[in-house]
Design a protein around this nucleic acid. Structure first.
Ligand SMILES: [Mn+2]
Ligand SMILES: [Mn+2]
Ligand SMILES: [Mn+2]
Ligand SMILES: [Mn+2]
Lengths: 218, 218
DNA sequence: TTTAAAATTTAGACAAATCTAAAAATTGGT
DNA sequence: ACCAATTTTTAGATTTGTCTAAATTTTAAA
């Protein structure tokens, strides 16, 4: 497995939402900031290796083997993110870039021991689930804050957009995972929300609300 | 800096003993298990970048910039080795291979924070000194056990050969860094030694004694 | 059903890092 | 100082992953 192959598998997994959906070469190219022709080349190679199903003009989907590999890389990525935050005091907007490198380190013992050191975390700093050694993971019961009904309460459990600018914005406004949120008012005009977050009241735009995951109480 | 360039710089540094000695392409090729012609190509490239001094048929030596880069990679390698042993319970014969990968991760913050987590260690698990952020390090005052005079006492502080087989041999015989050693007898015939190690007495071959570093007491 | 736009693949090129085989330079023994 | 062995470099090829430009296929609108 080369680094490039691993990155393709990961991208295909993410675009397919974990299912065996067929993904277009264009979609992969856009996501990876490369050219469709490069994707076609790699599709052939991964197909040769039995990691993806590929038929000309029909897009790409992961085989069981490919999915297994993708999940093991995602496991490594997320465990390293936890390590960086928990053990090295990185902020959640700093970890992704470094984890993109660390996820390619090859050593089963390393990742098992890291898992142990971190006390077998279930979620990464952005609220995304960490697959177990055998590729299983539980997607949390969650919904977008923008879809939480008026007057209901929930706990902030993840972000949809985990780009540094968004995460920094949340930090600046003291919005963190684990916080309790209640929807006080929904503005018809621009779908902005007035919310109670812990003991403060604040107004947030629809764009923010539709990138924050909450778990509804009850 | 590509991974390959970094590995060349590290090898040149090690072969030159840290000095600006000129190293032959053949020596580099042998050490890196590659071909001399590949080394020539890389020598030209590194020379272009100002990291080595290279004149045809004259071998290669590190520039100040090249030395600085080599030391930063060695710093990363050794800090990761300490991490693997101290935090993840790796044995000292397992760490090198993984550290060879980890040393190429690019993040200054990562390595500074790792240093902090490990409480600024001065030596790696094999007794080798860890360069500071600015490339300074102290070679320990040490000598080979085979050169320790009869009846003198010392502390085991490092290994010359840090290959897995040798390290495993030491483990099996409960010889570890920090142990106290006294030379009880030197056999003329085969230069083997009879030593006291902590509270045991044992006989070791010249080959072993000439790969163990000790710091003489007083 | 035809056809224009969009998506996808193919063909050919390139950079990085490597190799083999051949040529050139250096070295050391006489 | 010469020659033969050794070392080192050059030339040309290969692999991996990428690109551009052109050709092909699919799609979807008229
Ligand atoms: Mn990430
Ligand atoms: Mn994450
Ligand atoms: Mn090492
Ligand atoms: Mn070491």
């Amino acid at each position: 497995m080369t680094r490039s192959e691993e990155n393709y598998l990961k991208t295909i997994f993410h675009l397919g939402g974990g299912n065996a959906t067929s993904i277009s070469t264009n979609a992969i190219a856009e996501q990876m900031e490369t050219k469709p022709s490069s994707v076609t080349d790699m599709a052939k190679k991964l197909s040769e290796k039995g990691l993806v199903n590929y038929k000309k003009y029909q897009g790409v989907s992961l085989t069981d083997e490919g999915k297994k590999t993708a999940l093991s890389i995602i496991r490594k990525h997320r465990l390293w993110e936890v390590f960086l935050v928990e053990k090295l005091d990185f902020t959640w907007d700093e970890v992704h870039e470094v984890a993109e490198q660390l996820e390619h380190i090859k050593s089963e013992k390393l990742i098992d021991k890291l898992d142990e050191l971190l006390n077998y975390p279930k979620y990464d700093p952005h609220g995304d689930p960490i697959p177990s050694k055998d590729g299983k993971f539980m997607e949390r019961d969650k919904q977008l804050l923008s879809e939480l009904p008026l007057n209901s309460e929930g706990v902030c459990v993840g972000v949809k957009d985990s780009s540094a600018p968004f995460l920094k914005f949340l930090d600046k406004n003291k919005i963190a995972l684990g916080n309790t949120i209640e929807v006080l008012e929904k503005e018809d005009f621009d779908q902005s929300l007035r919310i109670r977050m812990e003991d403060r009241e604040l107004r947030i735009s629809h764009q923010i609300a539709s990138n924050l995951y909450v778990k509804k109480n009850q």
